[in-house]
Amino acid sequence: MKYLKFLLVGIFFGIVLVKSEVVSWYRIYEMFRFQSIHMYGIIGTAIISGIVFLQISKRGYIKNIEGAEIYVPKKENGLIKNIVGGSIFGLGWALMGACPGPMYILVGTGVYSMLIVIAAAILGTFIYGLLKDKLPH
């Protein structure tokens, strides 16, 4: 029962990303070619809505389910890891036309070859874990 809400959020997330065409390889290509406002509009309005939500909650108007303050984990600083890691991710995002969320969702839409990409992404994460201490951050 305690997991039902997460299942429902996941279902909602999957539906939204399909209906908004965020899972479309073509929409990602179009975005990186600056040929449409579609993806910029989605990411932009998502961030603006997110900022509004977090600013309201920061002022104490919204608490979490346990009545505590809404907590957003702090991202780690580090110019190299964010720029280099981000660029490597960007290369893969534009090639596959999918970031991790859409990868799972596309399997649900029937793109079963995406399972190969997911397996490779898990392997990529594993390789990062092996090399972590040797990489500049």
Binding site: G85, G92, A121, G124
Partner: peptide, 8 residues
């Protein structure tokens, strides 16, 4: 897939 998994 490797690029996405490693980079992220």
């Amino acid at each position: 897939g490797l690029l996405v998994g490693f980079g992220t």
